[in-house]
Nucleic acid binder design. Structure first.
Length: 203
DNA sequence: ATCGGGATCTTCT
DNA sequence: GAAGATCCCGATC
């Protein structure tokens, strides 16, 4: 049987918006694909957050550091770091080379390779990639992917949308304390794979 | 269903 | 020395 996900078209860098907020909205409904060990893992992006220049919540707020150089790559590269010493977080750089802005991928709707993503038979489908730490684990994204070109020919890449996208809603970001009132979180309205409290997901 | 604490490491004060 | 773009588990309602 042919899977719809096999037809996923790689996005070209030229197609990506040049503005970080526009990028965060644009990525909703796009796909993330990782070909590992002969298997294809594919999922729809359903939730993102934007981290901007001058944003106190951003890792690039104080400029270049040892862990964040990938945030300063041209748009469309992966910035992966370890949160709380344990969980990998996947971001997509979103500006020009030398400008530290990125979009955090916060939740995915699994499309293909779901059994490989699941940690156990009992894990519920909605839980597989709900939250940035979980989705990185499910997609086998690690620190080794930091700096990867997501618009290139590599195994980890961004793909075009594979179906209709419901309206994109906005809220404040999750899990931060600085600049916490800015509305820079985007999600597909009504999608059950979105993370976070219900109170944030009404839009 | 919801709440709170612990794990664990890089970075900056 | 403290905080952090989180997750999981156990306790409690």
């Amino acid at each position: 049987m042919k899977h719809a996900a096999e037809k996923i078209r790689r996005l070209k860098r030229k197609e990506l918006p040049r503005d970080t907020v526009a990028m965060a909205k644009f990525l909703i409904g796009c796909t993330l694909v990782h070909d590992v060990d002969g298997d294809r893992l594919a999922a729809r992006i359903v939730e993102t957050e934007a981290y901007l220049t001058g944003d106190a919540a951003s890792h690039a707020y104080r400029g270049l550091t040892k862990r964040n150089p990938s945030m300063f790559l041209k748009r469309g590269h992966a910035y992966v770091y370890i949160s709380y010493g344990v969980w990998p977080m996947l971001n997509v750089s979103s500006s020009e080379k030398g400008v530290g802005e990125a979009v955090l991928i916060r939740a995915l709707e699994p499309l293909q390779g779901i059994e490989a993503m699941r940690r156990s038979e009992s894990e519920r489908p909605f839980d597989i990639a709900r939250g940035p730490g979980r989705l990185a684990r499910a997609m086998r994204v690690t620190l080794a992917d930091d700096g990867a070109d997501l618009c290139g020919a590599g195994p980890l890449f961004l793909g075009a949308p594979i179906r209709h996208i419901d309206p994109v809603a906005i809220s404040t970001r999750i899990g931060i304390t600085k600049d916490a009132d800015r509305k820079l979180r985007f999600f597909e309205r009504g999608n059950p794979f979105v993370s976070g409290p219900k109170s944030l997901n009404i839009g």
